[in-house]
Design a protein around this nucleic acid. Sequence first.
DNA 1: CTTTGAAAGTGTAAAATTCACATTTATTAA
DNA 2: TTAATAAATGTGAATTTTACACTTTCAAAG
Lengths: 228, 228
Amino acid sequence: MINLYKDEDKALVAVDCIIFGFDNENLKILLIKRDFEPERGKWSLMGGFLKKSETLDEAADRVLRHLTGLNNVYLEQLRGYSKVDRDPVERTLSLAYYALINISDHTEINEEYSAKWFNIDEAPSLIFDHQEMVRYAISRLRYRAQTKPIGFELLPQKFTMKQLQSLYEAILGEKLDKRNFINKINGLDILLKLDEKDMNSSRKGSYLYTFDELKYRAKVSDGFTFKL
Amino acid sequence: MINLYKDEDKALVAVDCIIFGFDNENLKILLIKRDFEPERGKWSLMGGFLKKSETLDEAADRVLRHLTGLNNVYLEQLRGYSKVDRDPVERTLSLAYYALINISDHTEINEEYSAKWFNIDEAPSLIFDHQEMVRYAISRLRYRAQTKPIGFELLPQKFTMKQLQSLYEAILGEKLDKRNFINKINGLDILLKLDEKDMNSSRKGSYLYTFDELKYRAKVSDGFTFKL
DNA sequence: CTTTGAAAGTGTAAAATTCACATTTATTAA
DNA sequence: TTAATAAATGTGAATTTTACACTTTCAAAG
């Protein structure tokens, strides 16, 4: 078969990852300090180029694994960015992804990169259109977290109600009422209350919960939809 | 500056458009019958390749203008599709867009393509991953139509409440209660009720409305958010 | 061993929103 | 004048959301 596409322009394609974490207080993003041109020394998202033999999801996965060593991370594609001169070196398309990782379990970041966690509202300015990507990522995360039980990706497997509430407050950027929050979460009936308590936060101790994924899936296939 | 990216793989990048229309009864998509290889004779979305000098939005716009002659059409990027062999000819990335056009005003489709409107639930099967793109487009449209007043893009400038309700029913795929719908729409206070009536649908005639964009914008900047 | 401090845990009533639902009005064609 | 057809209109019940404050637990301090 002759190649009908041979006269078309090709482009470099990159993926850039907005990596979210949560430290029990603030929503954070992981940024790297570029030690290569262009824009050496500036802060940016972690990214990489798409290879011929992989999908975008695989590329994002690879980039993430390379930086954090983590596999099976929650990743969602956001959208493509395509300003003609967004990268000064060469015409490069970028597809933004966001990732949710559990900081507490995983502190080992590849030292090859000078990576650092920043509160989302204290992050430095970023190269290219990365700022715009972050804004979009936050808005998507806000939406998604109210629609799908993805918040748990940011928490340790066992967590307290307080942690869960603080997480949602950080994601939504607003304070929530404790009793209403707990009532709503319990109403969803997708958490498992453990016998175990976390004794760090108070003398009384607070119960630990886990997300009951199996129960959630069963409920979903019965027509249930998560809605915070 | 030496080109640091020169060893990276490049890819063809396409845009594919899900073009929605509404005929006062059903939500429709405009498909073309391919008269070129690969998959000649099969139905597909209208698409085209991204050129070096344009953004994705511009490419989608160009593709759309070429097919329909329309400018300033509502277009929203959906996401990238990147299965390695999604196009059998060559590795091609595609960015899906959806467009909302007002069928009644514009019937002139470029005859160069054999294009045809299909009800969304009666569309033929499509080439490549276009089917998947359509599904995603519908779900995004459903969400967006409840969040932003984009429905009006699919209607003539002057429309009846009945038309508006039928449109939302078609988008959401469910019947709505007439009185509740009207009460909700009127509650938003973003329509202008005209003195004019549409006398085609009944002896009594039904009032025509227009979307009052200025009022809507003013309300938005006062903190209002459209929510159906 | 009693007191104190600090966070955890718990329920209800008011307000707002959503939902279900049926009759009257206007017009023209018969 | 009557009949037929779609347009227009409001209310009460049910549900959901919101606001709100006191009691419990336990270890550390005295």
